[in-house]
């Protein structure tokens, strides 16, 4: 899979969220990181079609998908795990898993994925995706569902948010398995060093721009250099 973002900008209420992003993503495991408000989620949503860019084009394997609706992008092989999973009154975990698998055929595999995120499929299949599920449970179901699709491109928006340490372990295994068992690419928005450490490449966003894009260790070194520098605002009067 090759995903190209050409001159992507996004503005809302006169505020620039993404400023002329140019990226070519062709590695299988790419992490997107950066400070809060740097535009990471916006970028992910633009790729899925949840947001429309103010300008620029999105090219997936040579095809311009900028004007395609969300469902057609889903059919072309893009999946998206929401940072805050959506709750539904009446719809059950199994209903959405069936959608993710396009039928019942591979439901047993879906169950296996639920088990991998630490949820017993038998107990959860018929649970409603409503307020009776905790935030952590919703999050794990969301990740399992996205992984279950096993598409050409799976995007995870901060999968670690709201997940306890114990579940985080199994989460890493889900990504590793997705990486091993499918030929698809994974794009993860994350602040977690453990996730950044296993990425082939890292995109470091800052104030809506790509500050650094390169091999994992290279960008990690870059980030650790910035974060070890003291805040200039606080130190300017010390010299």
């Amino acid at each position: 899979m090759i995903l190209e973002l050409k001159n992507i900008s996004y503005e809302i209420d006169g505020k620039v969220i993404l400023d002329n992003i140019n990226l070519k993503i062709e590695d299988r495991f790419v992490a997107v990181t950066g400070p809060n408000g740097s535009g990471k989620s916006t970028l992910a949503k633009i790729i899925m079609g949840l947001l429309t860019p103010t300008s620029g084009r999105i090219i997936l394997d040579g095809e311009d998908i900028t004007d395609l609706p969300i469902n057609e992008r889903a059919d072309k092989g893009i999946s998206f795990a929401f940072q805050q999973p959506v709750r539904f009154k009446g719809l059950r975990v199994g209903d959405l898993l069936k959608l993710a698998y396009k039928g019942e055929k591979k439901l047993s595999e879906a169950c296996a994925i639920l088990s991998e995120v630490g949820l017993c499929a038998r107990d959860y299949q018929d649970r409603e995706l409503n307020d009776t599920l905790s935030g952590g449970e919703m999050k794990r179901i969301e990740i399992a569902m996205t992984a279950a699709r096993g598409t050409a491109l799976s995007i995870f928006d901060e999968p670690e948010a709201g997940i306890d340490l114990w579940s985080f372990q199994s989460l890493i295994r889900v990504f590793e398995k997705l990486y091993r068992k499918t030929s698809g690419s994974i794009v993860i928005i994350s602040h977690q060093e453990r996730i950044l450490a296993i990425a082939d490449k890292i995109i470091y966003l800052k104030e809506g721009k790509v500050e650094k894009y390169g091999k994992g260790e290279e960008v990690l070194r870059f980030i650790s250099n910035i974060s070890s520098k003291p805040c200039s605002e606080l130190t300017k009067n010390l010299d």
Binding site: M48, I70, A74, L96, R149
Partner: peptide, 14 residues
Amino acid sequence: GEQLLKLMTLGLTE
């Protein structure tokens, strides 16, 4: 709106 968007990411039309 987010419910519609979620199901659309799973391949359904609006």
